[in-house]
Nucleic acid binder design. Structure first.
Length: 204
DNA sequence: TGCCAGGCCCTCTTTAGGGCCTT
């Protein structure tokens, strides 16, 4: 059973957009939060078994030379599956990361018991004034601490975690007592126009 | 051969189309 007070925020860098078209993971980064505090991190490059495009090299800064000596996806994902055991999961545009997580774990016959929540879907509802809901844009808009690194797995996971905690904080300031992972999922599934109604009903 | 993601969400919608996000 997933723990109620802890969660893992994760981010993949990949060779492209779709595991169904043969794309693979090339880096996984994650932070484990317990009661809103970072207690552990995970970051690992992985060798997908073929060369990545020059687009991906320049988009992520991860080069073929860096991947040449990296351990295989199978090896890294086996270790990552231990990291996320029994944890609920968060990602920015979670449907993307879930597809890659599921595809990579299926290859090694591993699974996980947690559920996914999506920081992008929550942000679209709670941060409606943002010029866009790209992770980098939300980080700028909300003045979230960052080290200037974007499109690397651990850096993006850290920023996503900070964004998530900021949104939880904002809900607490609006009178929602200790917004849970499940409550955040409910927010993400509520029609935009009904979010204020949900919050009004949920106030302590 | 040539093409290829997929889920969410809005609207000039629901017998559909297109932008936003992720790499």
């Amino acid at each position: 059973m997933p723990q109620a007070n802890s969660v893992v925020v994760l981010d993949f860098e990949t060779t492209g957009l779709s595991p169904n078209l043969g794309d693979r993971a090339i880096e996984i980064g994650a932070v484990k939060l317990v009661n809103g505090e970072v207690v552990d991190t995970f970051q690992q490059l992985m060798n997908p078994g073929f060369r990545v495009s020059s687009f991906i090299e320049s988009y992520t800064g991860i080069t073929n030379n860096m991947l040449r000596t990296a351990p295989s996806c199978d090896e890294v994902m086996a270790s990552f599956s231990e990291f996320i055991l029994d944890e609920n999961l968060i990602a920015h545009n979670a449907s993307f990361d879930k597809r890659f997580l599921d595809a990579e774990l299926e290859r090694i016959n591993r699974g996980y018991s947690g559920e996914f929540a999506c920081s992008l879907l929550v942000a679209r509802r709670l941060i409606q004034g943002a010029p866009s809901h790209k992770l980098g844009e939300l980080v700028r808009y909300k003045n979230i601490d960052n080290d200037g690194v974007f499109h690397r797995a651990l850096a993006d996971a850290q920023m996503t975690a900070k964004l998530w905690l900021l949104m939880v904080d904002e809900l607490e300031q609006l009178g929602i007592a200790k917004p849970s992972f499940q409550f955040m999922k409910t927010v993400s599934k509520t029609a935009k126009g009904n979010v204020n109604l949900l919050l009004a009903k949920s106030r302590a």
